[in-house]
Every structure is written in structure tokens, then in C-alpha cells.
Amino acid sequence: MRVIRRLAAVTTCLALATALAACDDSPEKKAEEPPYVLGESDQYVAFGDSYTSAPGTGPVTKAEGCSQTRVNYPHRIAKATGVALLDHSCNGADTNNVVDPQTTARTRKVIAEPQIDGVGEDTDLITFRMGANDFGLIGRIFGCAIAYSKGVLGNTPQACTTLDETAPKGPVADVKDDLTADVVAALQAISDRAPNARIFVIGYPQILPPEGSCALFPLPPGDDAWARGIIEDFNVALRAGAEAIDATYIDMWEVSAGHDTCSDDPWMAGIKVPDGGAVVFHPYTTEGQAVAELVLAELKS
């Protein structure tokens, strides 16, 4: 009888242990699992121009001349996941600077080494937002707004659209395909170097409202369509690049609707910037936070 009791006790304990083990596989165990598929042992490289480096939005990093801040979306992603970050984003970078050093226009002094440096088979995560500086495209829009605000262009309808037809690097219509080819080539070089990485291609946000412009982003009558078309071309190129290498495209155009420079809740600074927060014609921290949240949501799957 005593032996039977002991066996019963052992059986009861085993049953209890099995039940507890089963409990470990339920919500409590899942709650202990890391929230993201990447963590401290993983490496992350961020490629980008000033719309990634986010000048004026916070304390700067040690990357002199690149205007990187410690609150841009690469740093937000790294902080949330714990991954080791190489932030190669740099003010003024174009897709050539993926594989070539970035230099000053006049003295050819090197500002930054090729952004692809440090990328390899052990790279686990890459984000990419570039192309706006190719052929001086984004600069054409900013230059138009500044010139118009100073009265240089008068009030001539579509003054910048007309000037663009004789642009030294070619009119927008003639370089659209070249822009796409540049973005695809840059992303292919990155993909070849980092075959094991998850790659996220980040689109550019809406800078202008769906129609017209405003005092914070002044453009000659009718030139808003020309400017908006250039920004849309950036995203066409980036989406094509993402498709070419089977990367994930993060569509910031739709997400930023209602948050353009002229809106009541802007994610973009205009020609006049409140004290702190950004630099002229560049994103506030809210835009970077939105990018980070979208990438982080993908890293949970």
C-alpha cells in the first residue's frame, strides 16, 4: 500500500510537471520571446542622404560633415532592436556614393568613404533611402522655392518648369530613367555584397500638398506639379530598385499624406524653421519616427 502511494505521488508529480511544461509553451513563454527577429548579435548598415541623416533634429554623431543625428530613424531602429549600427547616411549623398567616396564639389575633399564599406555576408539588416540628390533633382526644387521667395523669378507661371528644360544635367523628363537605373544598380551592389541581409528600401515623404504650394514652400504658379512629379519619380525609382532585388519597400508617400510642409501637422520643415527641430526643407523627427515604426513592424514578423 505504501509503495502504491509513492507511485501515485510520483505519477501525480510527473503529471504536474507535464502540465507546467505545457504552460511554458503558452502566452507566458511567448511574452519572454524577443519582440524583434534581430537583436544584439546582428549588424545593421544604414544608407542614405540628408533625409536619413536628419540634420538639425538632435545631437550629432562623429561623422563630420554628414549632419547625422542620434535620433534619426537608423538610430531609433537600432535602439529598439539592440542591433549594432553603422550609420553611413550623409548630407548631400547620391547613389554614386554607395561605392564611391563622397567629396566636396570644389576641393574634392573626402567627406565620407563609400557607404558600402563595412557591408558583407555578416550584415543582417540594411535600410536604403537615396536618389534625391542624383542629377541635382531635389536641389532644383529647393532652388526654385528660394529664388521665388526672393523675387528673382517674378510671378511668371511655370518659371521653374521652363528653366528645367535647359538644366545643365538634363531636364527632369530626360533623366527619369537614368535615376531608376542608378537606384537599381546601387541596390544590386548592396544586395550582392550582403546576400544574407534583410533590406528595406524607404520611400520619400510628401513634401508638398496634393495641389498648390504655400508660404512655407513657395513656388511659381503651376510649378507645384513639376516639383511634385520629381518627388514621385524618386519613389518610382526606389520601388523599382526594391523589386529588382526582392527587398521590402516602405511607402512613405501614403503614410505622410496630410503631413506635408503646408499642412497643419507638418513632418517637413519649410523655408522658415521654428527654433530647433530640423533644417530648411528637411524632415522633423516625426517623419523619422514614422519610418522607424514601419520598419520595426516588419521586423516583428
Rank of each mutant, 00 (worst) to 15 (best):
P221A: 13
P59Y: 08
Q188Y: 07
H75L: 01
I202D: 02
L86A: 09
D164M: 10
S213R: 09
M268E: 09
I202P: 00
I111M: 06
L153P: 07
A290P: 06
V295E: 01
G65I: 04
G212P: 09
S41D: 13
I111C: 00
E113D: 14
R76E: 10
E254I: 12
G120E: 10
F135I: 09
S53R: 01
A290N: 04
A46D: 05
D174C: 04
A257Y: 08
L216K: 15
V37T: 01
T162S: 12
R193I: 10
L137C: 12
A244E: 13
Q68G: 10
C90I: 06
L153H: 07
V83C: 00
T123G: 03
G39K: 06
I199T: 02
S256R: 12
A22Y: 12
F135Q: 13
Y44K: 00
L294A: 11
L137W: 12
V295I: 03
P218Q: 13
E113W: 13
S191L: 02
A225P: 06
A189V: 03
D251T: 10
A15K: 01
L238A: 01
H259D: 01
D192L: 10
R6A: 02
S256K: 12
V295G: 04
C144T: 14
E32Y: 05
A278Y: 07
E287C: 09
G143V: 09
A225W: 09
S26C: 10
G241F: 02
E64S: 15
Q188E: 15
A78S: 07
T180L: 04
D251M: 06
F234R: 08
L14N: 00
S67L: 11
S213F: 14
E243P: 03
I245H: 10
L163T: 14
Y51A: 08
G222F: 09
P266T: 12
P35L: 06
E165S: 08
G154M: 13
R106W: 14
P266Q: 08
S41F: 05
G151W: 03
T18I: 08
A189W: 02
I230H: 07
R198K: 12
L137V: 05
P34W: 04
A19E: 05
D42E: 06
S67Y: 12
D233E: 12
P59W: 09
F47N: 05
T127H: 01
N72M: 04
P274Q: 14
V295L: 04
I77A: 01
D117F: 01
A78M: 09
I231Y: 13
A185T: 14
T285C: 00
R140E: 11
S53K: 02
V295R: 01
S149C: 02
S256Q: 07
L187A: 11
A80Q: 09
T107N: 07
H75N: 13
T166K: 12
A237D: 08
S191I: 00
A93C: 04
V280K: 14
A237Y: 05
E40V: 15
D42C: 02
